[in-house]
Amino acid sequence: MRKKAMIFILEGPSDDTSLAGSLKYIFSSSRIEPLVMHGDITSDRTITNRNIIKRLHEEIRAFCNTKFLTKSNILRIVHIIDTDGAFIPDDLVQESPDCSQIVYSEDNIRCSSKQNLCRRNHIKQQNVQKLLDTYKIGGLSYSVYYMSSNLEHVLHNRINLSDDEKEQLSYDFAEHCMNKPEYFIQLMTSKAVYIDESYRESWDFIKSGKHSLERHSNLALCFHGSFGYESINSQ
């Protein structure tokens, strides 16, 4: 019998390289299909909370066509996003005209234009809230999880990396998990990362104060029901 597919929507190639092997290990009873967006749809200036679901549906439908996937053989859609500190109060955004790029810490964000960065954060907040209020896309079960403040922060406890550094770390992480497949589960359920709350409560947590700059993820909530974890109805 052919396995049903789980579509994982990922922001970039490094996410795919880092996570694909571990996701296949965790969800071994399913067929893992990574949909790489090559960007953050939640902070795209052409995307609003009025069209984000439509745009995602278009991306998913086109992806399914290339993979010859039909609704009947898709189990669910899991969307993994970076928080990018988007939920912090505006006063934690500091303007430094000499900044050539956005600089993140666990306490604040420094950038060349506070106005532009706050605008980005507000757009992302609205778009993420729309995703949280969405349980199905095209009739398929949908849920969204976060890496905070981004993937490398969660996996490596490092931020402000170059693209080359991200790429190298992704290959190193994938190799490490291939040799020790349980490592990813241990990391994502560790006290250093895991938010031990319900799905909604984990989102309430990351949206408060400066938590979206800190090292957290609720992705492990998606693992429940695999490897003997107690199944939960997190919605």
Rank of each mutant, 00 (worst) to 15 (best):
E33C: 15
I185T: 11
T46Q: 07
S112I: 14
E175D: 13
G21M: 05
Y199G: 02
D163I: 11
M1V: 08
V128G: 01
K166M: 07
R55W: 08
S112E: 14
F205L: 15
S96M: 10
F173A: 13
E197P: 00
L19D: 10
H211N: 15
S18K: 13
Q125T: 12
I232Q: 15
A174D: 14
K67V: 04
K207T: 08
L151D: 00
D196P: 00
K71P: 01
I137K: 08
P181C: 13
Y199K: 02
Y135H: 12
S28P: 04
S14W: 07
L10N: 09
S226G: 08
I77Q: 00
K191M: 01
C99L: 00
I109S: 03
F27R: 08
I109K: 04
K114F: 07
N51K: 03
S148L: 04
E106G: 01
N65I: 10
K3Q: 06
D15W: 06
N108W: 02
Y183L: 12
R215I: 03
T17C: 07
E33Y: 12
I102M: 02
K130S: 04
M6A: 03
F173T: 14
S202E: 04
N127F: 00
E33I: 15
M147H: 09
F223W: 00
Y171T: 05
N150Y: 00
H176P: 00
R200E: 11
K136Y: 15
D44N: 11
S234M: 13
F205R: 05
I206F: 05
D196C: 02
G209P: 00
L92K: 14
C177R: 11
L161W: 03
F68Y: 15
K207E: 07
L155N: 10
F227V: 10
L151H: 03
A5W: 03
D82C: 01
F8A: 03
R120W: 00
S18N: 12
Q94Y: 13
S170I: 13
A174T: 12
E201G: 11
F173S: 09
L75I: 14
V36Y: 03
E33G: 13
S43Y: 04
E182W: 06
S217Q: 04
M178R: 15
G138V: 11
E165H: 14
G39S: 11
C177F: 06
D107H: 09
L161D: 07
S217Y: 01
Y146F: 10
N121Y: 10
F173C: 07
D204G: 05
V193A: 04
E106A: 01
S28G: 14
M147K: 02
Y183S: 14
R50K: 10
E214M: 14
C222D: 11
Q186D: 11
